[in-house]
């Protein structure tokens, strides 16, 4: 797992993407994208948590290991966190996790941290579009099918 694996681009590759959304802002933004009928790729599945500060880096690692090609962590804009500073903590953890992913050859480009407000359905839809394209270009995760039941 430590050797860098160059992803092979596959024909018709449809990436699997998991998006963590916080209950108060980004999940509401995702709902608003729906209310506004903004269309975006099917590849993303949302997992709701109360706060982006609830997202354990291990959740992200586990998703990648199990076959996620990309993982998004989204929360309230800095300063807007319902729990004051959960998103700040999410950011610190994200930075550490990014380094780790680079070190072990998976690549931090497969994960992304974004702030999406409850009134920004457009940003949510655009992010889904853009991130799906980005992951499609990266190709399948080098970890795909390699899960062993623990990191």
């Amino acid at each position: 797992m430590t050797e860098a694996m160059a992803p092979a681009k596959e024909e018709g590759f449809q990436p699997s993407i998991l998006a963590f959304c916080c209950n108060w802002c980004s999940y509401a933004g995702a709902d608003l994208a729906g209310v506004s009928r903004l269309q975006y790729p099917v590849n993303v599945k949302v997992l709701r948590v109360m706060c982006s500060g609830r997202v354990d880096p291990y959740f992200v690692m586990r998703a990648l290991e199990l076959g996620a090609d990309g993982v998004l962590i989204t929360g309230c804009e800095i300063g807007d966190c319902h729990y004051i500073s959960g998103n700040v903590k999410a950011k610190e953890r994200f930075e550490r996790l990014s380094k780790l992913l680079d070190q072990i050859g998976i690549g931090s480009e497969r994960i992304r941290l974004e702030w999406i407000s409850a009134s920004d359905g457009i940003k949510f839809a655009e992010l889904m579009e853009e991130f799906t394209e980005h992951i499609t270009n990266l190709g399948p995760s080098p970890l795909k099918g390699s899960a062993t039941g623990g990191v």
């Binding site: 599945k45 997992l47 959740f59 586990r62 199990l66 099918g145 039941g149």
Partner: peptide, 21 residues
């Protein structure tokens, strides 16, 4: 609970239950 959701999101891989990890 969250890990069980992640695991069922990507079902193609057989894995032991989450709690142990």
């Amino acid at each position: 609970q969250i890990l069980s959701m992640i695991e069922s999101c990507f079902p193609e891989t057989e894995t032991p239950p989450a709690e142990k990890e």
